[in-house]
Amino acid sequence: MKRLIRDFLRSGLVQRALGLLAAEYLRLVWLTNKFSFEPPDVYEQVEPQMPCIFVFWHGQHLMTPFIRIRGSYRAKVLISRHRDGEFNAIAAERLGVGTIRGSGDHSGSFHRKGGVGAFKEMLRALEENWNVATTADVPKRARIAGLGAIMLARESGRPIMPFAMVTSRFIRLKNWDSTTINLPFGRGALVGIDSVSVPPDADAETMETLRLRVETLLNEATRKAYAAVGRPEGALG
């Protein structure tokens, strides 16, 4: 019975329905939360540096399609090839964000999960003036930044923009990344602190330093965002 239920939920028709429902629910959340921005001129600071590599923590990703709401920015997001990621891809596309399917994992399963192809597609997207968005975490290791975005920045020459986007009302799941389900009728905050650039000749030591810098900025942005909506206890660091 469990297998039948799982197969039903993973069917194409159900995944599409879930994706469309998720997109419209998130649109409701966006419209019914009053968002603040830190710094207030964050868009004016970021726009001249586009296209950029936007990174955020896994589990804090649901509202991220709305960072492009202030303009007609072209953006693509990396989403897992796993069937459970299908409705996420449908929801993102419904909200006007393009998708790149593959894994950001740079472990031994990188090739098997389509990581090489996805990495090349992200490079092409940046070359074609698309912004690219991806989670920063090492898979199954929440709040530990991986080298994926650092490698992409080194190869593309584009800056990394770590940010956090939260709401004051939410439900937090008890899974590996503590997924936050944002709720309507509250306050929201988008916080970006600083960009990170990676030299084209960056060696392993430099890349590790910059990886830690991205991790620090994401944790700081997350803490500031929750403080801005009056929920400092909501931050995970």
Rank of each mutant, 00 (worst) to 15 (best):
S168V: 03
H111T: 14
M207D: 08
R101C: 02
R213G: 02
G157S: 05
G157W: 07
I181M: 01
L183M: 05
N129T: 12
A227S: 14
L236P: 08
M165E: 04
R94Q: 15
N129K: 15
I90P: 01
A149N: 11
R68N: 15
T180N: 07
M161W: 13
A145I: 04
F35P: 00
A202G: 09
P139T: 00
E38V: 13
G104F: 04
L217V: 00
E127M: 11
R154I: 06
P162S: 03
K140M: 09
L28D: 09
I90F: 04
G96Y: 06
L78C: 07
R81Q: 12
S109Y: 09
R223S: 13
V29R: 02
F185L: 11
S72W: 12
G188E: 04
R16T: 11
A228R: 05
V29P: 01
H111D: 13
L123T: 12
R158I: 07
V14C: 01
A227V: 06
L236A: 09
N131R: 11
A202M: 06
I53E: 06
R70M: 12
R112F: 11
A225M: 00
S72N: 15
E128A: 15
T64N: 07
M165S: 02
V229Q: 01
R172L: 01
R223K: 09
D194I: 06
P199C: 08
V46H: 10
G104H: 04
G108E: 05
F110W: 13
F87T: 07
W176Q: 05
N182E: 10
H82R: 00
T180D: 09
V138T: 10
V97H: 13
A225I: 05
N33K: 00
V14G: 03
T99W: 06
L18Y: 03
G102P: 00
R231Y: 04
V229K: 02
E233H: 08
R211H: 10
R101I: 03
D41K: 09
K34Q: 12
S103E: 01
R10G: 08
G102R: 10
Q49I: 14
L31I: 01
K174W: 00
A225H: 00
I181C: 00
V42T: 12
F119S: 09
A221C: 05
I150M: 08
L62C: 05
M207H: 06
K224Y: 03
T209D: 14
Y43N: 15
S195E: 10
G114I: 07
S168H: 06
A136I: 03
P200F: 09
N219H: 14
N219E: 12
T222M: 09
P139C: 05
G12Q: 10
E121M: 14
T64F: 02
V97S: 11
H82T: 01
